[in-house]
């Protein structure tokens, strides 16, 4: 059943690496689970993937924390790990199989997200964030972005970096941030307009939408 639907997916979205990986696997180290018609890795279409915890966190952040970015981050990381274990990993199909959770990789990925926040910070600054002033806030934003994509990072690691299928999860966070910028120039002088709160909201919403519909696109 999945077979057919996967085919159509491959036609609409072209992530060049998919084909490369398929070919590479076919030619070099055939593992037995890969079939030419199936993408090597994909995420199932399922409502269970909708990351409601992100919305709840966002609501709590805006309503009760006085925009405490650090507190939000501390709570978001464990919920993301739980989401990966109970939701995302269970819906990710490698070849035709669901893989068991690799506990070591769960922790390695946490460290990797922490490190990835530095290149992410560079990108944020390059895209126009203030450089000298508010660098700490920008870094917090980078951390949030990285940990929002944590389940996708785990999967990228899990398939040896070779699959471009997970690009969309990163792109959704970037688009969320980029669109949310528009409230910054408004002269309403609200607390939530302070850097980088609007972008945090955008990133959460972007990743909420990305992870919800990721299987369908």
């Amino acid at each position: 059943m999945h077979n057919r639907k996967r085919k159509t997916v491959k036609k609409t979205v072209s992530f060049s690496d998919d084909q490369n990986l398929t070919n590479a696997n076919l030619n070099n180290h055939r593992k037995g689970h890969i079939d030419d018609d199936t993408p090597p890795v994909y995420v199932r279409k399922s409502w269970t993937l909708i990351p409601f915890h992100l919305l709840a966190l966002l609501y709590w952040f805006l309503k009760y924390t006085d925009f405490n970015l650090l507190a939000l981050l501390y709570i978001m990381i464990p919920t993301q790990v739980i989401y990966l274990i109970f939701r995302f990993n269970k819906n990710t199909i490698y070849g035709k199989k669901r893989l068991r959770l690799n506990w070591l990789l769960v922790f390695i990925t946490l460290g990797a997200c922490l490190l990835l926040s530095i290149p992410c910070l560079a990108i944020i600054v390059l895209f126009g964030a203030p450089f000298v002033e508010l660098l700490k806030e920008s870094w917090l934003l980078a951390l949030h972005c990285c940990f929002l994509t944590y389940p996708a990072v785990y999967d990228v690691f899990n398939c040896n970096f070779k699959v471009g299928y997970f690009k969309k999860y990163f792109i959704s966070v970037v688009i969320g941030c980029w669109i949310s910028c528009f409230v910054i120039p408004l002269d309403w002088d609200r607390d939530w307009q302070a850097w980088p709160v609007p972008l945090i909201v955008g990133a959460y919403l972007g990743s909420f939408i990305g992870f919800s519909i990721g299987g369908y696109i």
Binding site: F127, G128, W178, C181, P185, D187
Partner: peptide
């Protein structure tokens, strides 16, 4: 139509240029 966007027009242009 928004006075603050006129005042901060450089932000809009930055946004569009990058896009």
């Amino acid at each position: 139509f928004a006075s603050s966007f006129i005042e901060e027009e450089h932000q809009i242009w930055w946004w569009i240029t990058i896009s």
